[in-house]
Design a protein around this nucleic acid. Structure first.
Lengths: 208, 208
DNA sequence: GTAAATTAATTAAACGATTGATTAACTTTG
DNA sequence: CAAAGTTAATCAATCGTTTAATTAATTTAC
């Protein structure tokens, strides 16, 4: 293994620990010393690899953002009904929330604050793209009279807000769902229950 | 006006400013100096009135929590159908989110973090009471066969998660709803749209 | 191939700035 | 005058960041 690979792994390791801590305690509450201690590296390594604490924070966010693709291609799929497209997107959205829960916890906390940096707007734009895919399908379905005349904006907030509520307040979710441990919250069974709930909800909401 | 009244108003004023700042930036990101400057009081007044920054934080939260009543009485109302009870609760919940949006922003951010203090569990218990009112009505309705066999837990997350999404990420909501200013997000018209959306959604979801 | 030179990685210690909190002196109030 | 309220100045602790010295790894030179 070359040294550049080791360095890469070490960078990734620091980002992993940072992501966990930022998600759990919030950016300001995590000191560089606590971060270095948890990652078992010297404090100076943060500056050495990332420049500053804020740059590390941005790197953590950017790493996940770049992996998120917008599902615009679904809009143009001729073989799917409007409802099928929507239900397929629900699957994707729930999967993403479960896969990147730490990132979502960070991002949505950030979204509730005043613009901290340039990356805030970058995130916002990225997500609006996703929202607009949903919005386009719903509004097109309404116009083509395959959907009821629902409030498209709030319908999107329901589709996103439900898994967000579940993941971001997982301790609360655990109690509501009568789960014994926090780990159970993120098990496949619960993910499927969430998907089924959302799909039935949306189907009943939109179908004439 | 007596001096105790002036002191009371000054305390309330500090708490108002603190609530706004904590909601906007988060607890750690707000320094006592920034707080004192915004409230136009001396830094020492925070210790003088509240003891410490954390005690001020707890006081801000406690002030709102104490004003929240649990709507347990609705369960026992004989003159309302199960659906009526639920829709009435939806009204109450949305009203609360709009009335105490700063508090909700603080509380739900707190809920996403690791237990910061005793008040965390106090908040959690308080909210579980509200959730259980919803859960009781839904499960009772299912058992009495006036409701479809839905997933009660996730249905609650939808009812709470939708207004939460709207209020906690108001800048995002503004863009999704095509509103010109952030103030429009909190106007009566939007609140009613949200209520109507949730009521129709829940009605279709639960009605046989 | 190996020793020297160069670069990268890592460390403990220290930097100035800012943090929450307190002090002691002063002013206002009843 | 006693109590409550208010102030500027200061406290030690912690913050993010940087330094200078050292070790490890890689490249170069022969």
């Amino acid at each position: 293994m070359s040294s550049t690979e080791i360095a890469y792994e070490k960078k990734e390791h620091i980002m992993d620990i940072a992501e966990k801590l930022f998600a759990e305690y919030g950016y300001e509450a995590v000191s560089t010393r606590k971060l270095a201690a948890d990652a078992q590296v010297n404090i100076a390594m943060i500056s050495y690899y990332f420049g500053s604490k804020e740059d590390l924070y941005l790197a953590v966010i950017e790493r996940r953002i770049l992996s998120l693709r917008t599902a615009t291609h679904i809009i143009d799929d001729k073989h799917m009904t409007h409802l099928d497209k929507l239900l397929h997107l629900v699957d994707m959205i729930v999967d993403r929330f479960f896969e990147n829960r730490l990132f979502h916890q960070i991002m949505y906390r950030e979204m509730g604050m005043s613009n901290r940096s340039k990356i805030f707007n970058f995130m916002m734009d990225k997500w609006l793209l996703n929202f607009n895919v949903l919005k386009h399908i719903i509004e097109d379905g309404i116009q083509k009279k395959v959907f009821k005349k629902v409030d498209a904006g709030f319908t999107i907030l329901t589709i996103i807000g439900t898994p967000r509520m579940y993941v971001q307040s997982d301790q609360m979710a655990q109690k509501i769902m009568n789960l014994k441990s926090l780990d159970e919250v993120y098990m496949l069974d619960m993910k499927n229950r969430l998907k089924n709930h959302l799909k039935e909800l949306i189907s009943n909401h939109l179908s004439k």
